[in-house]
Design a protein around this nucleic acid. Structure first.
Lengths: 198, 198
DNA sequence: ATATTTATTGAATGTTCATTCAATATTAAG
DNA sequence: CTTAATATTGAATGAACATTCAATAAATAT
């Protein structure tokens, strides 16, 4: 049971790091500030994460895990039985409820690191492949879709979802936001119906 | 003609900043390092950009301007005359030639700032609106497309293009990259043909 | 109960950071 | 040619940075 304290402290530190990065930006979240935020000395952080790179890797692991944890079940629990309700699927893909639990700023700050850190790139890719695979499995449960190239379909759906989130993040106005969202939902619906009628 | 020196120096500094950020990452490109890279004292940088925020704003302006400068003409010079060659359009939207001139790492690092800087968010939005508008204008030149909702179509096309670039950045393997690219081209082609036959 | 390992503390390290300042060189204006 | 404005330099600032270390406290193993 020696691992317990270590495990808890590591998680506490990473969560504090994430929370602080959310507030002041990843680039401003120094070890000293994380320490102050958690009311522990910086040296204790370095005890568990011997250098900052490891701490950042830890944060990214945490973020990707949580991204998957809140995103996957939303589309996983569709209760498919031969026939899939495509409208429900689309609604869930674009449901923003989980966005309240997840900070896009930290996510994209970390994403920007994929360009100079192969291990981070691999971790991000892994997440995105998993999400696609989940959707593919769901489509395959419907007898009609199962006859199609569901892997390609899942890919095409997600590229719209991800492009949409990327773009929607720039929009402040609520009405405009809603309008664009409608566009993108219709677009995904189009992909699904096209495959359905093929 | 006193403005000349100032103009040139400011541009030189921002270009040096961009170049260095490309090499070592935006978060590591300090004023001292930019100075060393350009062989000028840090104080000269501060003479033209009184604080680092202004320097970053300058960099973002530079990036967005160049993004537009290399992206826009690629689709603008389609030579539309009533009939638009959709295949050429798709090829150009996904042509990676300009990507050699443009660093995605710096672009996304700056993008991540939209979440905590309204002025940066506005600048990014402005760029994306302009690109969409250009495409819309091109579609409108074709008599068939002009009867459709070209604004929505342009939006839907770009959301795929942007989602595709976001996703493709994670892929190292050349073959896999090419395969996915095919998917996304087909997807945009689908949108165009669907509108064409409506 | 003692020994050993791990957790935690707080002070100190040298380095790098953005920024300031006064001094000098260059340029443009009168 | 003189003056005023701008450009450039180099040295100096204190604050913040990641990291180290020795000392103490707590937990676990023998």
């Amino acid at each position: 049971m020696k691992k317990k304290i270590r495990q808890e402290r590591e998680l506490e530190i990473i969560e504090g790091f994430y929370q602080l990065a959310k507030e002041i930006g990843l680039e401003n979240a120094s070890i000293a500030k994380i320490g102050k935020h958690l009311d522990i000395p910086p040296s204790l952080i370095m005890h568990y994460f011997p250098n900052k790179d490891l701490l950042i890797k830890g944060l990214i692991g945490y973020i990707l895990e949580h991204y998957q944890l809140i995103y996957e079940p939303i589309i996983k629990h569709l209760n498919v039985s031969h026939k899939l309700d495509v409208h429900v699927l689309v609604e869930r893909l674009f449901s923003r409820e989980w966005n309240l639990l997840f900070d896009d700023g930290v996510f994209y700050s970390c994403y920007a690191m994929i360009f100079r850190e192969p291990s981070i790139r691999a971790a991000y890719k892994d997440l995105h492949l998993t999400l696609r695979k989940t959707l593919e499995d769901i489509l395959n449960q419907d007898t009609t879709f199962a006859q199609q190239d569901t892997r390609q379909l899942a890919e095409q759906i997600y590229v719209v979802v991800e492009g949409a989130y990327y773009y929607l993040a720039m929009i402040d106005d609520e009405n405009e936001y809603g309008e664009k969202l409608q566009y993108f939902k219709k677009q995904v619906l189009g992909l699904l119906q096209e495959a359905f009628n093929a």
